[in-house]
Computed example of a mutant assay.
Amino acid sequence: MRSERTEATQGQLRMLNLNIVFASLCAIGALLISINAENPVHAVVLSVGVAAAVLASRGWSGSLSSRVPLLCLVAASAVWLVGVLVLDDASASFGISVVGTVVLFQLPRPRRVAAAVALGAFVVAVVVARMVTSPGGALNVLLDHAVHSTSVAVVGVTLVFLNHLVSGLITELEESREREAELAVARERTRFASDLHDIQGHTLHVVKLKTALARRLVRTD
């Protein structure tokens, strides 16, 4: 009964963590869209990035296919590309920052560095392309995207990192509970073996005494 309650509590913690992350992503995405969208097309483009971020986080929870974050990364990259080169909107970095972080955490550790470098190179390449094609001057574009895009990206990365941290703690709790259950089984086996050893030892001692008594009686009677 206690084990069932523990599993239920851990499941509730996971669900609460995911709900908090989803709500935060949706709220921040809606705020970015309401502030930066200048027309319906602009709003749709930013909405695709937010949807990719939310869907990638849900795919990370294991409820969807493992390919979902990769598809979301393609969508978020397209939003970043269109948002910077066409719409000149630095807030388009929200989707790619969230999805990119989710994908990086899913990769094995040896491959994370190479993937992070590749993703960073893509982001920088888009900004450089905007600087080259911008009529307003490369310095203004650099300052705008360096401050605005970085701020938005930091928010997205922080949310995903906190989600990853809490999920890791819950996983450690589950593993600890499993180890505790294994130790309880091992202790029960040890106790049973000890009791069996004591019983057998007592029985053998009684047999030994009876044998000694029988030897004496054989000689006297």
Rank of each mutant, 00 (worst) to 15 (best):
Q106D: 11
A30H: 00
A27N: 03
R67V: 05
A23D: 05
V41C: 01
V102S: 07
A53N: 06
A27W: 10
A90K: 11
I33S: 08
V82G: 06
V79W: 00
P69T: 00
S61Y: 07
C72Q: 05
I28F: 14
L107Y: 04
A75Q: 03
A37N: 07
L81S: 08
C26M: 11
R58F: 10
G29W: 08
H42A: 07
P108E: 07
L32S: 08
C72L: 06
V41F: 14
L46D: 01
S65E: 06
V103L: 11
H42K: 04
V41R: 14
S93P: 02
A53E: 06
C72D: 10
V79R: 02
P40A: 08
W60F: 13
L46Y: 03
V68I: 14
V45F: 02
A56M: 07
R67Y: 09
S77Y: 06
F94W: 07
L70P: 00
P40G: 12
V99S: 05
V79L: 08
V82S: 01
H42Y: 09
R67C: 00
G95E: 10
L25H: 09
P110V: 06
G95S: 11
V44K: 12
V99G: 07
G83M: 01
P40C: 10
G49K: 03
V68Q: 00
R58G: 09
S97K: 05
L85N: 11
A51G: 15
G83Y: 00
A92M: 10
N39T: 03
L73T: 05
S91G: 05
R112N: 11
I35R: 15
G49Y: 00
A43H: 06
